[in-house]
Every structure is written in structure tokens, then in C-alpha cells.
Design a protein around this nucleic acid. Sequence first.
DNA 1: CAGGTCTCCTGCTAGC
DNA 2: TGCTAGCAGGAGACCT
Length: 269
Amino acid sequence: MPELPEVETVKEVLKSQIINQTILDVVVNYPKMIENMDYLDFIEKLKNQTVIDIKRRGKWLLFELNDYYLLSHLRMEGKYYIKNFNDEVTKHQHVIFKFKDFELRYNDTRKFGRMYLLDKKNIYNTKPLNELGYEPWDDKLDVDYLKIRYQNKENPIKTVLLDQSIIVGIGNIYADEILYLSKINPYKKAKTLSNEELKNIIINTKNVLEKAIKLGGTTIKSYTSSEGVHGKFQNELLVHTKKICPCNHKVIKVKINGRGTYYCEKCQK
DNA sequence: CAGGTCTCCTGCTAGC
DNA sequence: TGCTAGCAGGAGACCT
């Protein structure tokens, strides 16, 4: 389940692998994955495009090409593998980018991932990037901003933290960690949070995500940034998937708006 | 506008 | 032991 740190890790690994490489051909085995055009157009447009840079916006990967941006969202299980031409294509490898000496294959067991191919100009003002909130390190992400965005939110803060139109990059794992570090009960309504609590959320969001990026992300279930690359942040998790809180109190697992949520009743008020 | 529910998918597993 | 219902969850669609 890639969240911001995992996507950042994938981005860095991919940069070391495919920058300045030219796409010679593309194979799309699962056309529904291509969101904004027919897959045949997608293939034609990508031919002879060179990878100039790779960026990240929220949980989106942005491949900058000569004439386009290729956007890729890994959703739950998306992964990129570098493979040789004669390596067997497995049933979960849905999009294959052929370069001169190797292939980049997009692997996604549950087929939730999506790709867009956009004209280069105004990508941040068009779907799907146009409704994203601030990056965790954006100066504009402050208490006043959250106050305004949360003022009508009756939903639990756990749910609201996952809202990508407010802050990008937080997924289910890090939301639990952020709330734990901020000592906030996940059920607390977003609109009722104090300035102090909002401040803590901002600080802890940055801290948790920064630390996770340094450790290459979290490997809990099926996520790997590239074959054989595993994150180490799972060793640092304080509540998510835990049974006992560092305070020795039992960690509770509940469902909040359908999402598995771990928290400590004693530490999080 | 806000929020609830459903949907997309497949692999794994708890429980019979 | 073998089968299956249920669960996992990011995000958009759709409805209230």
C-alpha cells in the first residue's frame, strides 16, 4: 500500500534506472489501466519519447517526457520492475515499456493502479492533479489552513487525514502513526481539533513521512519499491499493526469508515 | 457541500 | 483437509 514515502522511494529508484532512456515500444495488457485515452493512442504517443525527469505529486508519479507527462498512481499494489526482454511476462504485468536494453514493467496484482498521459502544459491544473492539497512540506500548510479546511468536517480525523484534497500523501498506515504521535484519538471530529492539535498533526506528518522516506518506506504486505528493494520503516511503526503500545497499554484495532485503524486509548485522547 | 456506500480487483486466511 | 465468505484499502462514482 504505497503512501508518499513509498512513492518517493520508487521515484528515486526509477530515476537511477530510466532517466534519458527512450521508450521504443509499449505493451498494454490491461487497457482499463489507461484512464484518459484509448490504449492504442497511449502506445503511439509514447513511442520515441525520452524520460527527461521523474517527479512526484502526492502519491502520483510523474514521468516527464519530451512532449507529455505520464502520470502513474500505484494505488494498493502497483510496482515497477526492470526486466529483460526474454523474462516471462506474468499475469500481473499490465503495462510494459520497452527501452533499448531492458523493459520497465508495471505490475499490479489487483489492477487498481491508473495511468494518465497528459500534454505537458498545465498538468497541475487538470485532472487528476488539480484537486490535490498541499504537500506536507509546503509552507502554506499551517494551522490556519487546516482550521479552514476542517471547519465543516464532522468526520473523524482519521478519515479526514486521508483526504488528498487537504494534505497529500497520507495513507492508512501513516495516518495512524501521525495520530499516535500527536496523541489524538482517531475518532475525534476534525472540526473539534484545537490549534495545538492541528499544529502537532502538521509537525508529526512531516516527521513521520521524512523518517519513512529516509528508511525507504514501509514494507508491510506486498509493497516493494522495485524488485528486491524493501523499506525498513515497518520496524519503526508505533501503533499500526501493533498489539501493545510503548506505554504497555493494549493497542486497539477498530474500523473507521471502513479503514483498519490502530490506536492506544490511553495515549490518544 | 458533506458524507455514506458501492465499486474496482485478486490473494490470502479465518472458520466451518 | 478443502472450500468459501470475507477482508484488505486508495480513490472515484453515485446517491442522499
